[in-house]
């Protein structure tokens, strides 16, 4: 036995949640791209996974860390304000796994990041199943096609959603008006992805082929546009910068996304440590498929295929990894 939510009840259910929580849903932004937008009764985009991932809600592309108030030659440090509790609806399996990967770094590795933890702990996540494999995805290869790390998961059925329970906090999301008991079973994860990546010992194979010729040939096409890192649900690198406030009341410190595809990412005085496109493209692929796995025992790539989708010159990390496996030293 489980719960079922009828399709016509979805919008009223979200509206109900919106009374107490800030609700985010997959919808079109002002540019027409699909991403997670604040719920306002707008049309939902539930057909395919969003172009922008759920990362944007937890690691916004620009965020204030501190405010330093200047007063009588002294200085007071103000921390950033806490967040309203959130519900994120419509998170696909790949993005759920992406959040788990970010948790490893921002909650467990050398102390938790207070800004990330604040948002993560005050938000509940409702997942949503995929009915079709996406054009560039390879989640079945990465093992991220099976949903995990959610509070509720909605399996799409003919006229509604079978609701799977994932955490003790699910009761906060339950309402008897919308949920009815059902004998239906949960669905099955996507297995027939269009791309395939063999991940067996991949981290070692890539490490051993650090000087493989494919880095030269692929980087000749790479534009270093950093679209891949911007769109990736697990790319998390950031830069911290200070700003003077124009009213001279003090200064603020904010963090902003950074991209390893740009030269300034490794610029120290007198040298840029990854000056060539080759080394920067390699850093991206190696971090996704080798380095992070060596460190945290999970790949930084969740197989959503967004980087392949947005790359203007169609560089694919699946192709690179498969080619190295096929040609490189074992």
């Amino acid at each position: 036995m489980g719960y079922f939510l009828k399709k016509q009840n979805l919008i009223p259910y979200l509206a109900h949640l919106n009374k107490k929580y800030q609700v985010f849903v997959p919808a079109k932004n002002h540019n027409g791209a699909t991403c997670f937008e604040e719920f306002s009764g707008q049309e939902l985009c539930l057909k395919e996974r969003t172009l922008y991932s759920v990362k944007d809600l937890y690691l916004p592309n620009k965020e204030r860390e501190f405010f330093f108030e200047k007063k009588h030659g002294s200085c007071k440090i103000h921390e950033t304000i806490k967040h309203r509790p959130r519900i994120v609806f419509g998170v696909r399996s790949c993005d759920l796994h992406a959040l788990n990967v970010l948790d490893k770094l921002f909650l467990e590795f050398y102390g938790y990041d207070p800004l990330y933890k604040n948002k993560r702990n005050t938000s509940l996540v409702i997942g949503l199943s995929c009915s079709e494999p996406c054009e560039t995805g390879f989640c079945a290869s990465m093992g991220t096609n099976k949903p995990d790390f959610f509070d509720l998961f909605f399996w799409e059925k003919k006229d509604g959603y079978f609701v799977e329970i994932g955490s003790p906090s699910w009761e906060k999301l339950y309402h008897k008006k919308f949920f009815e008991e059902t004998e239906e079973k949960k669905g099955t994860p996507i297995e027939d992805c269009k791309l395939e990546l063999n991940t067996a010992d991949l981290e070692d194979i890539l490490e051993k082929n650090f000087e493989h010729g494919i880095w030269n040939s692929e980087s000749k096409r790479c534009l270093s546009c950093s679209s891949c890192t911007e769109i990736c649900p697990t790319c998390h690198c950031f830069t911290v910068e200070d700003n003077f406030l124009l009213d001279d009341s003090g200064t603020e410190r904010y963090r902003e996304w950074a991209s390893c595809q740009l030269q300034r990412f490794t610029k120290i005085h007198g040298a840029i440590l990854r000056a060539s496109r080759k080394s920067r493209l390699r850093q991206f692929v190696m971090h996704k498929l080798s380095y992070f796995k060596q460190q945290h025992n999970v790949h930084l790539c969740v197989g959503c295929g967004r980087c392949i989708q947005v790359c203007p010159v169609k560089i694919s990390l699946v192709d690179i990894a498969e080619k190295i496996r096929g040609e490189g030293n074992a």
Partner: peptide, 10 residues
Amino acid sequence: LMHCGVGKCG
């Protein structure tokens, strides 16, 4: 180059 000191900024 470092921006955080705590293994996050990459």
